[in-house]
Design a protein around this nucleic acid. Structure first.
Lengths: 198, 198
DNA sequence: CCTATTGCGATACGATACGTTCCGTTCTAT
DNA sequence: ATAGAACGGAACGTATCGTATCGCAATAGG
């Protein structure tokens, strides 16, 4: 096996090849050896990156995880069936599929679990994760906003609280390792909607 | 400060003094230096315990945390006002007080947050924490069971799901560092009860 | 009363990861 | 042409991990 020449600097700016190599190395370590083995040392070795470079762009293991999570964006489009409960059912089903990888992508559940864990002892990660989540929930925001406009939402329930209800339920399943399959989405949506309907 | 003589064995059985010293040391480290500094090394040093002894009884940092959490049992009694919403309000308020230490005890929130985090990469902790929680929620079980007997609970809502709804909401606040004060309990209970009432 | 067994504090150990620092090189920006 | 940033690579000191070993103390079982 030929020894490949190391990447070198591309000058006074970030080398995109290095970034790619680090992300790939991290993903491979997770896939092949599990999350426990995802250390800065191991990633640097596998990516043939200097540790200084690694620390410059990803200050901690948590930031690496976050970057990986960030990379796995949903490619799915909007949900708009015209009915609140149907929309929420579709949203929950999609989220459950993403978590468990039954959408053909890498399962997000283990990654998100570790990320939530990491956030408990690192405020930086907590805030970054918070921003990341808001972005991912635009879909849900839109669903709720449209239901509000149609008058399908109980005025006593704020959009913020409705969102919280849905997400907290999924987090609870996630953190207790009891995520149901996507076929449970309708039942879950129905039971949550009881309090939200106009 | 006098140099105390080291504890020695009390024979072929566990030394309760050592157990106490370890628990105290762990609690002190957390209080004085934060959770980051809670390492097996540091606890052994501070408790003047051999590391072998430490590892024999608490195989990991997670088990230490769990033992600490276990030690902080609620001393509060039963809740039974005769009304489901009132009971749930009281339960939530009590839980929020425990979490934030406004009951005069050590705040449980930081400990539980780290414990949940630890459980995400250690199945042993996850199961032990699960048992521990079931014990703590007997209060809530009783509240819901009595409401069922009085016919105050929507028959379409299982007791299990009702419990989940309440706990998942609190966990969500806990993990996002947005725990409300106990005065918010009534509003939270009211909004959750909407779907549970008969 | 004797002995095997167990718990204990203490210490040393190798392994691993952390985070920093330095080097020589490459290329950009001015 | 020069200053400066990014790069791979290596070395460094520090810290923690988890295990092993020692000698002592005290119980449990015969």
């Amino acid at each position: 096996m030929a020894v490949e020449p190391p990447r070198t600097s591309v000058g006074a700016r970030r080398n995109p090849d290095t970034e790619q190599a680090v992300m790939d190395a991290a993903a491979e370590i997770i896939a092949e050896e599990g999350y426990q083995k995802l250390t800065m040392e191991a990633v640097a070795r596998r990516a043939r990156a200097g540790k200084a470079t690694l620390y410059r762009w990803w200050p901690s293991r948590g930031h690496l995880l976050l970057a990986l999570y960030s990379r796995a964006k949903s490619t799915l489009g909007d949900i708009d069936t015209g009915d609140l409960t149907s929309d929420v059912t579709a949203f929950i089903a999609q989220m459950l599929r993403q978590m468990q990888g039954s959408d053909g992508q890498e399962p997000l559940a283990p990654m998100l679990r570790l990320l939530i864990a990491e956030a408990q002892s690192d405020a930086t990660i907590r805030e970054a994760l918070h921003r990341e989540r808001r972005e991912r929930w635009l879909l849900l925001d839109n669903i709720i906003r449209r239901a509000e406009e149609r008058g399908q939402l109980n005025p006593a329930v704020t959009a913020r609280r409705a969102e919280q209800r849905i997400i907290s339920m999924i987090w609870y399943f996630l953190l207790n390792d009891t995520l149901p399959g996507p076929e449970a989405a309708a039942e879950l949506a129905e039971s949550i909607m009881a309090e939200m309907r106009a």
